[in-house]
Nucleic acid binder design. Structure first.
Length: 146
DNA sequence: GCCAACGTTGGC
DNA sequence: GCCAACGTTGGC
């Protein structure tokens, strides 16, 4: 089982859209590093769902329900080449009882090496199991450390 | 709204 | 292939 984090702007596609819809085709990724991460996702992997821009915070957990396939929203490639872009399908599995703000993640030394902090512009990234556990614990109401 | 980080584009 | 210019993302 692998762990990931995906970013979304809540004004464009937030957690409430996601839960209302029940399943999301995670399309529109146009960055190769993010694409590589999407392509590496496996059925059942757990994904932290992060709201960027306004009130940046992890708000819940999603599960990978379908592995990568061609992004139907990608523009056609010249010469009929297959598109390099792909999507996965996600379903919401767990809503945090309290969102975990970026500031809290930044303040925890154990999480200082997360891609979320080190590479703030990447929109799909791997998360280590202990990082996932820490954030999940906070999100489900464990006492805060600081 | 500003600015830093960083990916992409295009001139050479 | 290098690098400057530019666009986009996202934190504050």
């Amino acid at each position: 089982m692998n762990y990931w984090l995906v970013k979304t702007e809540p004004e464009k596609y937030g957690w409430s859209h996601f839960t209302a819809q029940g399943r999301a085709v995670w399309d529109g990724v146009r960055n190769y590093q993010a694409r590589n991460n999407l392509a590496a996702m496996q059925l059942g992997d757990q994904v932290l769902f992060y709201h960027s821009v306004s009130n940046p915070a992890v708000v819940g957990v999603a599960t990978v329900m379908r592995e990568a396939y061609e992004d139907p929203t990608a523009p056609a490639e010249p010469n009929g080449k297959p598109t390099p872009w792909c999507v996965v399908e996600l379903e919401p599995t767990l809503v945090f009882t309290q969102p975990v703000p970026l500031a809290q993640i930044k303040a925890e030394p154990m999480l200082a090496n997360m891609g979320l902090i080190k590479q703030s512009r990447l929109s799909v990234m791997p998360v280590k199991p202990d990082e996932f556990d820490q954030i999940l614990g906070w999100g489900m109401g464990e006492a805060r450390k600081g």
